[in-house]
Nucleic acid binder design. Structure first.
Lengths: 122, 122
DNA sequence: TGAACATATGTATATCTGTTCATGTGTTCA
DNA sequence: TGAACACATGAACAGATATACATATGTTCA
């Protein structure tokens, strides 16, 4: 009978602390929120995008400037900027043919710094 | 001659703000640090790992408990815990056959909250 | 000591993702 | 208006990665 209950789950081990499991399940953030959160960090989880954000933390830059700073093609930078913009990590403004990008918000740099602090504690 | 200089770079566009580009290049964090930072966020950029961390924010849990909370196999949870441990996001302790995991540090939850705050501003 | 159980790990595979190439869009200026 | 340039984007390919399956490790207990 306990086995039947287990088979409803993908886990192949016994419930050890059923009360704790139920409590944590009830207290969890909605799965949708957690997926959104993971997707947000996923955007930060690419070295090209992090290098772009780090560059923009110093100065507003156009696409061509960023490509030169990172020594990468304009195309790949453009693709990554699209992803950063969708995640509301950068904003842009047009000035004639040139489009300038900047960090969307000062707390973007704060999140990056929180990560750097974590790493510096190793 | 300008074209020859450009060909040293992968960028297929002209340098627009050469002084700014040079300054940002000089001010950038070492590339190695930025790669480490991206790798750190990459660990957070998976919904399974985020759900594990979120669960552990509520309570210390054994591997089997986590598998039940997420309704996933013990094996996949164990693989992800290994990655979280390598990134120093979780710690564990053994009590007999059972191994309990908890967040490594209170500021792990702080980083996650920073992300949630960002998302709540949409 | 050996069965039982919690956890770890190697391997294979299906899926995801970043870059490149080719091309499209929008602006300037002669 | 049409050439030139900055930037965006669609498609395709290569490399990365999360999961499942099988199995190994380590602990308890009879």
């Amino acid at each position: 009978m306990n086995l039947e209950v287990q088979n409803e789950y993908k886990c192949d081990c016994a419930i050890i602390h059923e009360d704790v499991v139920e409590k944590v399940k009830a207290d969890q953030h909605p799965e949708e929120h957690l997926i959104d959160l993971a997707d947000f960090f996923k955007v930060l989880g690419d070295s090209t995008r992090i290098r772009i954000l780090s560059a923009l933390a110093h100065s507003e830059l156009c696409v061509c400037d960023i490509a030169h700073v990172l020594n990468m093609t304009q195309s790949s930078i453009s693709h990554q900027l699209r992803i950063l913009k969708q995640a509301r990590l950068v904003r842009n403004r047009r000035d004639g043919k040139v489009i300038y990008y900047r960090l969307d918000d000062e707390h973007v740099a704060a999140i990056m710094n929180a990560g750097l602090v974590h790493l510096s504690h190793e």
